[in-house]
Write a protein that binds this DNA or RNA. Structure first.
Lengths: 221, 221
DNA sequence: CTCTAAACGAGAACACTGTTCTTGACAGCC
DNA sequence: GGCTGTCAAGAACAGTGTTCTCGTTTAGAG
């Protein structure tokens, strides 16, 4: 039953956006009264939250699947596959992506306890791969050193706190490089999904692939 | 009168987001009946569009002001100032930024004839500065060459079309570099304003400055 | 000065939304 | 049988965008 509600809500999200998902339409869709819906859903925000968590989970699952399908001995290849899956899922699920990473709705505050853990999954997965690559000595020391030179005390402390909080087995400059790469890929993805890239670059696929190879270079791989 | 409507709507946008701006509240705010509002506004979407155009214009104005205030003989400095202003305005006006660059609402289609011209202004301004820097021989030829090596036929044609469409006096690799930089800065800004950066890097200011210097290097300046 | 037409504002109404409350039907269990 | 809990339905309230109709005001032409 909860599943039917979620399925209907998901369909509305995909066809009409976040503001298009309405409890009455969900009730109409699955053939019950609106009031009956409140047996299974606390609130409209509660339903949106469920969709949000689902979006984060699907997204992270897609990244995980790509990593699992990659050659485990080819760490740069696995990282590439992860970042590529990160973008591909987003392009294929614009509504869910917009819900998860779009402008925050002032009225609605996402419950941190249910979202943060799952929102951080793709980043952590890539960070884990990068840590293994670093441990294997695959990361160019010159690149690390150059990044270290650009670090100031403030950001350095921030990255150290991040590494400790998420248990990333990486030196601060490597964390910085990984964050750089992630910001780049996520930024590209946001622009593409939200339509700000199309007027700038025409075949997004090819441009992303070139961005990906450059990102790997930037990572020292 | 139209100004009073827009001012009230802007206040609602800033305090409650796009979905928080309601015609009835605007009417209540300026002390007229809802129906009287339709004398000045075609539609709710029409009002949102007005806010959208205003946001784009303000944003571009902020970038222009920063460029105009910069030393005209220091082109890299002017580009830095432009990109810095791009981010600063966005952070200071999250609601307007979210409206302009957030997830597109399926029901609402922005009228292209009134938005595209103004949405492209900051990019064009930076591109103009970069073209002058390139004409002055300030762009490292090695950087251009390396970027050219990473270009394939598809994206190359896309960048050429962009340069022709917007009359950018730049070779294709330079256009590619500029787009790279823009994607990076915009991507960072989106992540910061939408709250996805805070869990990753703590002093956003310092991180952005380091991103900026690195971006200038990437541009060959 | 008068008359007319346009502009302006107000109110009611319709369809839609989220949410709550009350009522009723059914099942399982003592 | 009676009681308790779960489910569903309906009505109601407050809020929304939008349209229609009705008065009032104002400006300009004759």
């Amino acid at each position: 039953m909860t599943e039917a509600i979620l399925r209907s809500a998901r369909a509305q999200l995909e066809s009409a956006g976040v503001e298009g998902v309405t409890l009455r339409e969900v009730a109409r869709d699955i053939g019950i009264a609106v009031s009956a819906l409140y047996r299974y859903v606390d609130n409209r925000d509660d339903l949106i939250t469920a969709l949000l968590v689902e979006a984060f989970t699907d997204h992270a699952d897609a990244v995980d699947a790509a990593v699992d399908a990659a050659d485990p001995d080819d760490l740069p290849g696995a990282i590439t596959a992860a970042l590529r899956a990160y973008r591909t899922w987003s392009v294929q699920h614009p509504a869910q992506f917009g819900l998860a990473f779009g402008a925050p709705v002032p009225g609605y505050r996402a419950p941190a306890d249910r979202t943060i853990a799952v929102a951080v999954r793709p980043g952590s997965r890539v960070m884990g791969l990068y840590a293994r690559a670093h441990a294997a000595g695959l990361v160019d020391p010159d690149v690390l050193e150059r990044r270290a030179a650009r670090l100031d005390d403030g950001t350095s402390a921030g990255f150290e706190a991040l590494a400790q909080r998420q248990s990333y087995a990486l030196p601060v400059p490597a964390v910085a490089l990984a964050v750089d790469a992630f910001v780049r890929v996520h930024g590209f993805t946001v622009m593409e999904v939200f339509g700000q890239l199309r007027p700038l670059v025409s075949p997004a696929d090819a441009y992303f692939e070139s961005l990906l190879t450059d990102t790997l270079t930037t990572l020292g791989l």
